[in-house]
Design a protein around this nucleic acid. Structure first.
Lengths: 227, 227
DNA sequence: ATGCCTTTGTGAATACGCGCACAAAGTCGA
DNA sequence: TCGACTTTGTGCGCGTATTCACAAAGGCAT
């Protein structure tokens, strides 16, 4: 389930606060989901709760980590060291969750050789070497759109079976390879869509809170046809 | 629908290649979805196809852009100018889709005053001013986890009704505010989960291609219990 | 003009996810 | 020891999304 990482994060926060046991209600609230859903999710990986008490935080952390495969280290390579690649290389959330960045690669000679977050950027020509040497199993593609499919084909040919794609293209891969896509522009477009509806979209004003109940302080934003 | 931006991107690519009309089958393939689903999605915003021919690319681009609210400009502020904030500020996919970054804000005095992608970083104290002056309606939160909820409360109080959150926390907002979350660590954890299953997870080896059919060149990666 | 061929738009069947609500199970106080 | 209370685990119904499959609609060649 895609929600397990969220639970895990909430559990880590509880752990840091010294909480030993937690009820499904509390944990669900912290994770922003329904408590029944959370219980059902947890029950799918075995019954680790005690009725009348709740779940033991530490034990649950271990079980979820195990289920997610975080009890082992995963070796990651980042291809494309532009602004985004740099940000990813320096992102602390990786190392703390068992993800080790073993290689940074780029095609730009200006960038190759630079040291970023303790790693030297290597040339994309060495892609297969880097993957082989370090046993990379997850590739993060942060290249321009045009280069993404080519890079993807190469990492797959080199044995990578999971790809995290930040380039704005739909990657084609063999069926044994998993791809997840993060697209900043699409996220904004979805927000714009809802924003437009709130401001009284094509269907006429629908469903936004009136100024009477505890709505926004300012009426609404101006909306005028952009042509 | 959350798929419209994907269709739009595929259509833009077709437009660049000079394609005038496209069938649901082709477009669905380019967008990575089922063709019936695509037709149903498009039919929900009116019937813009011609039977026997397909859809006119240019017209469809306009209709989807309109539906998504991209015929107007949206004003965005980015709060938190670390590695990620910097990457976002320089991301070309924003401007080209009608999103204008009007403000960069940070709490760090070292960063305030720097010019990044043509914008001067301002101090977080001026948050409300920046939002008001430019009519910001979308806030991008790229702060550390600890600061995110506080920043979120402030932008909401200042009138922002859409938030794109990169901080690894679940934000609590009034019900008229939309939040979308992008969490790099969670994406990797989901990949690790599938990776583990492919490598013969807790359930025993299940469903991965054998070495007989067109599987990966190398057998599989080593997997050993990490404790 | 006419009939064949392509492609859309959609009814119907299916699968899926979600959440309510409750029984089973366990704790804790008396 | 016993009963009341808390919390888990899950059966069930419901609404939504997805897919199949086909009839309606339009183009195009003859």
């Amino acid at each position: 389930m895609a929600r397990l990482p969220v639970y895990l994060r909430a559990l880590h926060a509880l752990q840091d606060r010294g909480v030993a046991t937690v009820s499904s209600e509390e944990l669900a609230s912290a994770a922003g989901v329904n408590s029944a859903k959370l219980r059902k999710d947890l029950s799918h990986l075995g019954s680790y709760g005690t009725r009348g008490v709740g779940y033991e935080v530490e034990y649950l952390v271990y079980q979820i980590s195990r289920e997610l495969g975080l009890t082992q280290d995963w070796v990651v390579a980042i291809i494309g060291v532009g602004n985004l690649g740099r940000a990813l290389a320096g992102y602390g959330g990786f190392a703390s969750r068992g993800f080790r960045v073993a290689g940074l690669l780029d095609a730009d000679e200006q960038i190759v050789g630079q040291e970023i977050s303790g790693l030297t950027v290597r040339h994309i020509d060495r892609l297969e070497d880097v993957i082989g040497e370090h046993g990379v199993s997850i590739a993060v593609i942060a290249t321009p759109a045009g280069a993404a499919q080519g890079v993807c084909d190469r990492v797959v040919a080199a044995g990578v079976t999971s790809v995290l794609n930040f380039a704005p293209v739909v990657l084609t891969v063999p069926e044994w390879v998993d791809v997840r896509k993060v697209d900043l522009s699409i996220e904004l477009q979805i927000l714009a869509f809802h924003e437009q509806r709130k401001a009284g979209g094509p269907d006429g004003a629908g469903g936004r809170p009136s100024a009477l109940d505890s709505g926004p302080p300012e009426p609404v934003h101006y909306v005028e046809a952009a042509e």
